[in-house]
Structures are given as C-alpha cells and as structure tokens.
Nucleic acid binder design. Structure first.
Lengths: 218, 218
DNA sequence: AAATTAATTTAGGCTAATCTAAAAAATTGA
DNA sequence: TCAATTTTTTAGATTAGCCTAAATTAATTT
C-alpha cells in the first residue's frame, strides 16, 4: 500500500510523462507538486527503493509498470468520485477537484468497483477526461484543441485541458459546455483569437481559451 | 483543521466518555487506540494545547465543547458514509466499518451535507446508531440490551453494541436483523443464556450475544 | 575547452506521531 | 502508614516528509 504523498507523486509523474517522454525532471516535478527540488529528490529515492519508478541521478524519472498501475488506479478513483459528486450530489464541475483529491486516496477495491457500477460505468469525468476501467484501460482521446482548428472548421466540445475553477467558471458564464457544437467563423493571425459560433450566437474568445478546449471534429 | 490522528483520538475520547464520566484515563485511551500510553500522553498534550480537551496530569481527559463538536462531526460523517455504502453500493453491514473509517476524514462541509440530502437525511446507520444532524444534534437512544429483558418480555431489535464483522456475521447466519421482533421465552440463571423466539422459530443464544443487541421494548 | 549558469543532489534540521525504557506520581493493601 | 503495585509521564529515539543551504554535476556560452 502506498502513502498519500507517494500516490500524489505517482499521479504527478504520470501526468508529466506525456510532456516529458524521456523522463520527468526534478524541477518539473517540484513545480507540479508545489514543493522544493530537494524534497522531490528524497521522494524519488523512496519510490525508486519500492521499484515504482526508474531513476538514475541527474537523469529524470520514469514510472515502472507497477508505478503506472498505481497512478492509473488513483486517477480512476479521482475521476469516478468527480462523476459521483456532479451526477449524484449536484456539485458543479468547478467544485469537484479539491474533494476528489481527497477521495482518490480511499483504499478499498470493493468501494471503487461498486462506485463504478453505481455510476453505470462512466467513460468520462465531468471535464471530459477518460476514466480507466478496473483493469486500468483508458479510452484513447481522439481530440484536438480548439486552437488548432482553422477558419470554417466545425467540432463538438468534448473536454477541457485546464480544469481550474476560474476557467470552468468562464465557460459557464459563456454557456460553453461539453457536447456543444462550435464553428470557427474567423481566426486572427496576430493573436490567434477566434470568433466562434455556438448555439446560433457568435462569441469572440482569446487563444488562452481556445488552447484549453478539446474538440472532436465531425 | 485537525489531523487524521487528532480526529481519531477525539472520536475515541467521545466514545469512552459515556463509560468514564469523570474523565478518560490514559490507559483506557491507549487500549481503544491500540497504542502505547506514552503516545497517548503526547497526543493529549497536543489536543490540550489546541483546547480540544481539558487535561491535568494524572487526572484523565475530557473533551471541551470544541472537541465534542469536532468528534460529533467525524461520527456524523462515519455514519452517513456507512448508510451510503449499504444503501447505495450494496455493501453488507459487516463490510462498512473499515472504509467508513477512511471516508470519515474527508474534509468538505458541502460534501457531508449533500451526502446527507442524497441519502434523505437518515436518522440511523446500518447498525442502528443515531446520525447527528448538521448542527450536531443526536437522536437519543431509547433502548436496552436484550440481556436486560426478563422471561416473557418482547421487543424489537434496533441496534448492535458490538459492530465487529464476526458478531454481525453471526447475526446474519441466524437471521437476526434490525426490525425483528424478539421474545424471551426462557432465561438461564446460571449463564444468562436465553431461548428467544423470532420469526416463529426458537433460538438459544449466549449472554455474549444478548449483551450486544439493543432492543426497544413495545 | 574553460567558464559561467542552471539543475540536481547531499547534508543537516524540523515536526508529527509513534516507540521503548526509565522516572515519577497515585493507588492499594498488609 | 508505608511498601508494593499500577498508572502516568518524561526522556530520548525513530520514521516520513518536508525544509534551507551548500556542494556537485550537467548544460550552455563565449
């Protein structure tokens, strides 16, 4: 069994590995974990002793198979609890993160699997992220950022890259939610801002917005 | 906010206070917490520094108002989660304790209150124990132990004193559950064992059983 | 290729929560 | 009452997880 802190590190490494294919640097991990590089080195040693990561001094860190399994299990629980909070308890999608950060560490295989069943085996969490199944299998995300679409292209909003409360509240305020069809009417060369059409109305959004919205093109 | 360990101590003191009205002794608390007396002394000092307990050396410990409030909040969460596990996720009443021990430490007032609402404000947990409401008010238990009934008396089973998996499994095996009507047909002077009638059938039970079953007499 | 800068690790401390062993205080009982 | 026993506290270690400051290694410039 892993400690709360170990689980958080494993999760962070997992998320960073997509960006740092050749190994996650100590500094990147320190940034992600909001801690000091020296603390990261300490923890990496502990995780390495438990064979959850592969580590050579000054070379960055990668999850082992066991580490990956553990990370995916935590992510599975996090996302299932998010679905529970929104679907069953009426939380808004910008209110679930902090609570799910706690709930993801509850240890009970039966609990996780019964929760999954109770929620009818959801495939995605409220932010559109895929939920691993009991075997750790992910749905592969076949999506692009809205910022990558060209003028005239159309797609469905399927997820958010940034799930901070601030960003989600901006989306709520502008009625942007998962499932909405979005058409790129104009795209500014200078700052990448866009004029989009949604619900029959036009809306101008900055690149900061479009670069955090996942779209499935139709 | 309190640490996991602090919350567990507060809860233990709360439970022991009913038996030790004049203050909970260090040894009793060590026994309850499955730890050493010296560790208890350490923690009592910490709780005392935070004004969660009143403590004078060698005199046992009592919860302050703040300590009592904190303990009741933890107990409220524990029992609500037990209801959730049984009612919504299909756990048996002998499987919920360990998981609820973890869930009771999740910090989110909104979560607790929305869970309470989702469960339709249950008054009792699966073992018949009262659930404090959001203000910390308990239903007062108006019940006696089955072992206190005399021959010929009748009552309804409303709770268990021991909620260990072993005891609950014994009850399951003998079809004893909350809500059942029980009549004392015979009571043995020598060992206090009883012959009881339930569901039209007779069953002989030892004092260890009858002293752990709460009854509401009709 | 040497020098500077940046990243990483080591060394040494700190705190919460635990432990063992010893000391001190309270209780019991002859 | 006072000696023996029990209970409780103190003293001193230990571990996980974090910190700061210093040292080391790697990367980048010139």
């Amino acid at each position: 069994m892993f400690s709360l802190s170990e689980e958080n590190y494993l999760k962070a490494i997992f998320h960073l590995e997509t960006a740092y294919k050749s190994g996650v640097s100590t500094n990147a991990l320190a940034e992600e974990m909001q801690t000091k590089a020296s603390s990261v080195t300490d923890m990496i040693k502990r995780l390495s002793d438990k064979d959850l990561v592969n580590y050579k001094r000054y070379q960055g860190v990668k999850l082992s198979e066991a580490g990956k399994d553990a990370a995916i299990e935590v992510i599975r629980k996090h996302r299932l609890w998010e679905v529970f909070l929104v679907e069953k308890l009426g939380f808004n999608w910008d209110e679930v993160h902090e609570v799910a950060e706690q709930l993801e560490h509850i240890k009970s295989e039966k609990l996780t699997n019964e929760l999954d069943k109770f929620l009818e085996y959801p495939k995605r969490d409220p932010h559109g992220d895929p939920i691993p199944d009991a075997k750790g299998n992910f749905a592969v995300a076949n999506r692009v950022l809205l910022s990558e679409l060209k003028k005239g292209e159309i797609g469905i909003c399927v997820g958010v890259k940034d799930s901070s409360a601030e960003f989600l509240q901006y989306l709520d305020k502008n009625n942007i939610s998962l499932g909405k069809e979005i058409e790129v009417k104009e795209k500014e060369d200078f700052d990448q801002s866009m004029l989009i059409k949604m619900d029959g109305k036009e809306l101008r959004i900055s690149n900061q917005i479009s670069a955090n919205l996942y779209i499935k093109t139709t």
